[in-house]
Write a protein that binds this DNA or RNA. Structure first.
Lengths: 222, 222
DNA sequence: CGCTGAATTGACGGACATCAAGATGTGTGG
DNA sequence: CCACACATCTTGATGTCCGTCAATTCAGCG
């Protein structure tokens, strides 16, 4: 149904620790920033979930594979976003850098230990999990819509993050978007051109989308 | 796309407190059992989430509506299952009794207060949320599969709960199943008969399914 | 028994996947 | 700086799965 991305291992370099600005967050100062190359794996499905992560720059995708090769992208994480918080002791999804990225890596046990007596941090973690739950629930609502609605919703979702301007920069490929929306790359592409032709958006480059008629997009996002 | 269920208000009686056996759980003895008629609402989307619930008998569905009338069933809850735990202050989904049901209702504040100093209960709540997150994530994987795979997965999922015998009793209608799987009632029905014809299952009644070839179903559940 | 909602079955069409070819963009080495 | 290679994206032609519309059967219940 959906084509899997080609094995990215060739492109992936090993992550190496870097020093940079620390984001303002409950996790700051508790961990080490690491650098990940495009398509480098941050962690794999079923690996022990010993760390929490926060995107400092770049972008990260999490995904799960169906054994016939289909891929479901679970989420995209942008600068500031925390990921890897999942429930049990192991990760439910794999995580990869979409582009060259800096990620703050924090020992889970350290966070949990501090959360024991710091009510704020504890609450923050809870909120995080809850928000993630909401996000995934929202996502499963998306998957019963038609292609037009899914793509419109996706664009608005991406626009809602980052600086809300008249344009969005998409860090991910059409294949990533397709696997996120449960469509094929061709359908995503066709829907984009259809939006362009109806004057809803304009493509500065294939990765940079200008909004021309946000109201119409919102209407599709039913 | 998907037909919404007819307004069930006519069938729904007001819940009335009942006395019965309390289930063995961290919530037992903290709340009052209530009785809900078939299709009666337990709570509505966007209502304050002041209570937690545990199914004692019967079955409950949670769902969300798209404004064009399509319905997405989020989850089915069977005896023993706890529901209504969602994140914020309001419910993200509505909950209805599928059949005549007894539900244990517990004040959320009471549970939370007790969780403050009872580490076990606190941990239990966390685990519950995490498991819910896993379930929803699993569910969004389901929605990218084809009809055959979705129905096979559903049957195995239902079989995995309750007593694992050679047959499952489905408390919910075809419409519920369809809205859970993101299919139409007709497609669900056709897939059932297709499974019957290929000898994977047998229908004792339309709601009672016997497994005839579990291996083949597992294969479909890729 | 007849009424009513639930489930099944059939005929048909449409939205999206698949297969295939081209166009565009990007990094690399000469 | 150009040219080649390769990945990404777009566009077209065709097929198919599943949704829609409609009729029939089945099960439960007064």
């Amino acid at each position: 149904m959906l084509a899997a991305a080609a094995n990215p291992a060739i492109l992936a370099r090993q992550p190496i620790p870097v020093r940079g600005e620390l984001p303002d967050s409950p996790l700051a100062m508790m961990g080490a920033p690491m650098r990940f190359a495009r398509n480098a794996e941050v962690y794999g499905e079923d690996e022990p979930a010993d760390y929490l992560y926060q995107v400092m720059s770049g972008a990260v995708r999490t995904y799960r594979m169906l054994d016939d090769g289909r891929r479901q992208v679970v989420a995209f994480y942008l600068p500031g976003d925390i990921f890897g918080v999942e429930a049990g002791d192991v990760h439910l999804a794999s995580a990869e850098a979409i582009s060259e990225s800096q990620v703050l890596v924090v020992k889970r046990s350290a966070v949990m230990a501090r959360a024991e007596h710091e009510r704020d941090l504890s609450k923050e973690l809870w909120t995080l999990t809850v928000r993630e739950l909401q996000r995934v629930q929202q996502h499963s609502l998306v998957l019963i819509k038609n292609a037009e609605e899914r793509v419109a919703g996706f664009l608005l979702e991406m626009a809602g993050r980052g600086t809300a301007s008249a344009a969005v920069e998409l860090p991910m490929s059409r294949q990533d978007i397709a696997d996120y929306l449960g469509l094929t790359i061709e359908t995503v592409s066709r829907t984009f051109t259809q939006f362009v032709q109806s004057g809803l958006i304009a493509l500065e480059t294939s990765r940079r989308i200008q909004f021309r008629n946000r109201a119409a997009l919102n209407r599709l996002n039913a």
